[in-house]
């Protein structure tokens, strides 16, 4: 074929549909026009999977994610990612994401959609009731222990540092000592 890519475009007069894969642009535009990501908002983040700590750039437009790829300035991954990191886009565009609080009643076979306000009130009341019922001021030796063995918590190595700190602070204020997470297993 003697035609160059541009030659082809001249000949075809640009009379092609929006069927070039990728960004839904005509070939001429796909080639010469700005990429969809060019004017997107760029936000740097760190990959949520393993602990290598690779940098990512999230491209967003209109409040939604349109592309996620490796951050070329990041000294560890230098713009690259593994298959999990490369798939992070589907953490957002995913019909299985749960986006409303849900509740499962005693003996029920189903989840039901509930409000945040109701859930949080219910949970707060249960925390208090269980804490009050199981709180141990002194142990069998008479030593002060001020703890709640009736509630336990596991998680989370996926929280941000600030959230980890807040979470342990909160749990310990309720008297929990059964606090564990992924690092133990």
């Amino acid at each position: 074929m003697e035609l160059s890519r541009r030659g082809f475009l001249k000949l075809s007069g640009g009379a092609v549909g929006a069927s070039i894969v990728g960004v839904g642009l005509k070939p001429a535009q796909a080639y010469a026009a700005p990429l969809a990501i060019q004017y997107a908002k760029e936000t740097t983040t760190i990959c949520p999977y393993c602990a290598v700590g690779c940098g990512m750039i999230v491209h967003s437009r209109g409040g939604d994610v349109i592309n996620i790829e490796g951050d070329p300035d990041h000294p560890i991954n230098r713009g690259t990612l593994c298959s999990k990191g490369s798939a992070a886009y589907q953490l957002r565009h995913n019909e299985k994401r749960i986006t409303e609080p849900m509740y499962r009643a005693k003996g029920s076979r189903e989840w039901q959609k509930v409000s945040w306000d109701w859930s949080l009130d219910q949970i707060a009341q249960k925390i208090k009731a269980t804490r009050d019922a199981t709180f141990m001021e002194k142990n069998s030796k008479g030593q002060v222990v001020n703890r709640t063995d009736g509630i336990a918590s596991v998680g989370s190595a996926a929280l941000d540092n600030e959230e980890c700190y807040l979470f342990q602070k909160l749990l310990r204020s309720w008297g929990l000592v059964y606090i564990e997470h992924q690092a133990r297993i």
Partner: peptide, 13 residues
Amino acid sequence: FRTEEGLIGFDKD
């Protein structure tokens, strides 16, 4: 079609 860089693209239309 072949692009200027020598890649082979396609046009579904």
